[in-house]
Amino acid sequence: MRVLAAGDHFVRPGLIIAALRDEPGLADVDVAELTLPWPHEPFGPVGGPESRVIEASGTEEQLIEALAGAEVCVTQMAPFTAGVFAARPELRMVAVSRGGPVNVDLPAATRAGVAVSFAPGRNATAAAEFAIGMMLAAMRRIPTADAELRAGRWRGDFYAYEEGGIELDGATVGLVGYGAIGRIVARVLRAFGAQVLIADPYTDPETARADGVEPVELDELLTRSSVVSLHARLTPETKGLIDAGRIARMRPGAVLVNTARGGLLDYAPLPEALRTGRLGALALDVYDLEPPPADWPLHSAPNVVTTPHLAGATRQTAHRAAAITAAEVGRYARGEKLAHPAN
């Protein structure tokens, strides 16, 4: 069996190969390498306006050439379009080392008889820790204070009562979504002494209560929480979930954090909500348009913390991604059922 390790500059080909070698039965597997340009070059849609591949790196031609003789490909970003499947009929499996196979045309893969797997939970710890960091940064104005001091301004006035931040200890924090990431965030918040509310229609209420969190409806969560953090998956049902109406229901001065997906949030009302104090602070790692344009209104809004979609960017995430996909290749090679099938 020949495997193509189509890595990039995060989940490197070397990590994929090392994980494959550690998998029982794959120590001597024939592996070819391809290094795609992400993240040094942005990902994007590949294959034309009708393509189902919306987030990928590299070109179809590059991938088709590298796949010569390969039965399996392990990748994070390679563009598996209908054209690629048509050009390489010998391909039988694609193991995608990310939380969803958005770089694969799944209907085309299914028609071609190619099994596709993915790597749920690979960045859960990284994303959860990052969300906590964003909460603290927004609640205590850490980036603003840092920027002011670097600019030569000693902002002792930040100690004034009206400028003071809020603590997690004793605060009510609402988590919208209670999957793998949300559960880790809740555990850390409880260690800080926060009361945690969760809104997730797919979570069993008794399970949530056993975890020490309180399940409530979304509107109740918004009205009770001093901090609201988004951790839901982006689906047709959750797109625009937090819109102007729901922002208006939030407690005056509440902190809103989005490290999940940009599409969960309506960004248009946010600048005004910050200027009026409806929102006390906003922390964002994801956006409706990535990267945001230079004239983006939130660049000039007060009390905003922004990072460029980095929540999952840890070395441990890259290692876990490689290990999860290598294990799937091992199952395929042994004729076992895949643990994380996408089609």
Rank of each mutant, 00 (worst) to 15 (best):
R2F: 03
V3S: 03
D8A: 04
R12Y: 00
L15Y: 03
A18R: 15
A19K: 04
A19H: 10
D22I: 00
V29P: 05
D30C: 07
A32T: 15
L34I: 03
L36H: 00
L36W: 00
P39D: 01
H40S: 01
E41W: 00
P45N: 10
P45D: 09
G47N: 02
E50Q: 10
R52D: 06
R52T: 05
A56G: 01
E60P: 02
I64Y: 01
L67K: 03
G83K: 04
A87S: 12
A87R: 04
A87G: 06
V94I: 04
V96P: 03
S97Y: 01
R98V: 07
P101I: 02
V102L: 08
V104R: 01
D105C: 10
P107S: 08
T110M: 01
A115L: 13
F118N: 08
F118L: 00
A119W: 06
R122C: 05
R122Y: 08
A127V: 15
F130Q: 09
L136V: 15
R140T: 04
T144F: 13
A145R: 04
A147S: 14
E148C: 04
L149E: 00
G152P: 02
G164M: 12
I166Y: 04
I166H: 12
I166V: 12
L168A: 14
Y178A: 11
G179W: 09
G179Q: 10
I181A: 06
G182M: 09
I184G: 04
V185Q: 08
A186E: 09
A186C: 10
Q195L: 10
D200T: 12
D204V: 11
E206M: 11
A208Y: 07
A208P: 10
R209G: 09
D219R: 14
S226R: 14
L230P: 05
T235K: 09
G240H: 13
I242G: 09
D243V: 13
G245V: 06
P252I: 04
G253M: 07
A254N: 04
V255L: 11
L256K: 13
V257H: 06
V257R: 05
D266Y: 07
P269E: 12
P269W: 14
R275A: 14
L284P: 13
P293G: 13
W296Y: 15
P297Q: 05
P297N: 09
P302G: 04
P308M: 07
A311L: 08
R315V: 14
T317W: 03
R320C: 00
A322W: 03
A326H: 07
E328Y: 03
R331G: 08
R331Q: 12
Y332E: 01
A333D: 04
G335D: 08
K337R: 15
A339F: 00
